[in-house]
Design a protein around this nucleic acid. Structure first.
Lengths: 264, 264
DNA sequence: CGTATATTTGATATCCTTCAAGGACGGTGG
DNA sequence: CCACCGTCCTTGAAGGATATCAAATATACG
């Protein structure tokens, strides 16, 4: 399996514009709309729970900065983390279909989120077809990530599972300019890693320790890197095709960004 | 947690029209377009693999009849079934973003699928906003199912996991008129159940046996039912909010179907 | 009918969890 | 500056859940 090199984000103060603009040429109008849509923001402290399962969501969130987890609680009291939301990710893009949340969301770090009114999402679909494609793509991408997590949870042993997850985080962070080729700053505790991977924290620790011992991953005061990248990719069976960048549907070919940055 | 009674599909030869039309009043024009879009169909035999990981998909599939599994293979040779596609479900709705498949798909039974040209999906987004909402809702719904499977795979013991899955299948089948209040005809072998649930087939068998012994599920020549439905729901921690039916965004209130079937 | 396929059960090995406790580390207040 | 505290990480030991191997029985299918 060939891997594409993750496309670094176009430098921008706005992670959404960066992501959508990385491979598609946006008009000024579109960029302005995206910016206006995110005018209102909220700051969260580490540990703040800002979405609760069963309660109504009034707005869609867009992560500007910080790490967010979405999770569900089992009747037996176990927590399963459904996913980690990183800068440029939406939370609750489905809000127009149902306001009632089916998950909890919590800030892992100090975080800043944009508050996007549901009406904005509808307006994008009515008036900005290219941006609407972008949102649809982001939805597809989230589903791809969920699928791949299913594979990890169902069919990969603990060490592979954890390493796969770390490689995914690194890939996603590079995409939004929050990781270097060296590695990234992991904002998850081992207990949180365990809750992502369906493991006990003890077993997560042992598996991680094993990976470190075998030099497939290195952790240094919260900084994660992959000293033997190729070996790690093989070991974890990591194929990043599921994290493909945004490309427009064929009919909008003229807007595709070339390597030089101009329209094709 | 309260459960809604699954909404039986409006009787119709077309499962997609049935699902979208169940809670939203469709115009004749919309119904005609959906019908035309599905004009071309393909028949599959049990065991036919019609999508392969890494290969290009030319069309989106819409299940008319039969059960389909989508799955991935691990480098270690394990199969993880990502999901079961039932009548009225799309496979590859994302095709306009990337034609290259990231999963395999196989017919579990004799099946009939509609072949939907990618251009049709684009046209729906351009010209039929209500239908476009319907497609978006179906995408959201699939993601909800994936999320809930993550919880099962990561945080529920084998028997609960299997029972939860069976309750989900029943709920989804009722929605499309393929199950009665009694139960449904299960088209998965125990090995396939195991591959859905990240278990060995031996353990899937033992867990299932246990559920039968405790009368939480009954299996009779492929027919599954829940003799103690309430107890089963409790035991499996099954909360069907994640399978909510299609409702239009607030701005299209006039198209909402009332109980009498007329526009509100 | 006969043969392949699916289910069931037993025995044993492995993975993973739980319980328990010690050690590292960062923050805070005296 | 240092002592204290909480949180996270680490490791040991034992038990439980699930996997693997193997074989017998049942069921479906040509």
């Amino acid at each position: 399996m060939t891997k594409h090199t993750p496309q670094p984000a176009v430098d921008s103060a706005n992670p959404l514009v960066a992501r959508l603009g990385a491979s598609v040429l946006l008009t000024e109008d579109e960029i302005d709309y995206l910016a206006a849509m995110q005018a209102s923001t909220i700051d969260l402290a580490k540990g703040d729970e800002f979405v609760r399962d069963g309660e109504d969501m009034r707005v869609t969130f867009l992560v500007h900065d910080g790490w967010i987890i979405r999770y569900k609680m089992t009747a037996a009291g176990r927590r399963q983390i459904i996913g980690v939301s990183l800068p440029g990710d939406f939370i609750g893009l489905h809000i127009n279909f149902s306001r009632s949340s089916t998950f909890n969301a919590m800030a892992l770090t100090k975080a800043r989120l944009a508050l996007v009114e549901p009406e904005r999402i509808l307006e994008i679909h009515r008036r900005y077809p290219i941006l609407a494609s972008g949102l649809d793509w982001m939805t597809v991408r989230s589903a791809n990530i969920l699928s791949e997590h299913n594979v990890s949870l169902g069919a990969r042993p603990a060490p592979q599972r954890i390493l796969h997850f770390m490689l995914e985080l690194w890939t996603r962070l590079v995409t939004v300019g929050h990781a270097s080729s060296d590695g990234f700053h992991l904002r998850l505790s081992q207990e949180q890693i365990a809750d992502c991977m369906g493991l006990s924290s003890v077993h997560a620790n042992r598996s991680l320790r094993r990976l470190v011992r075998e030099n497939l991953i290195a952790v240094d005061s919260g900084n994660v890197s992959f000293p033997r990248w190729k070996a790690a990719v093989d070991y974890a069976d990591f194929d990043d095709r599921y994290l493909q960048p945004f490309l427009l549907p064929g009919n909008a070919r003229l807007r595709r960004r070339t390597k030089a940055g101009a329209a094709a």
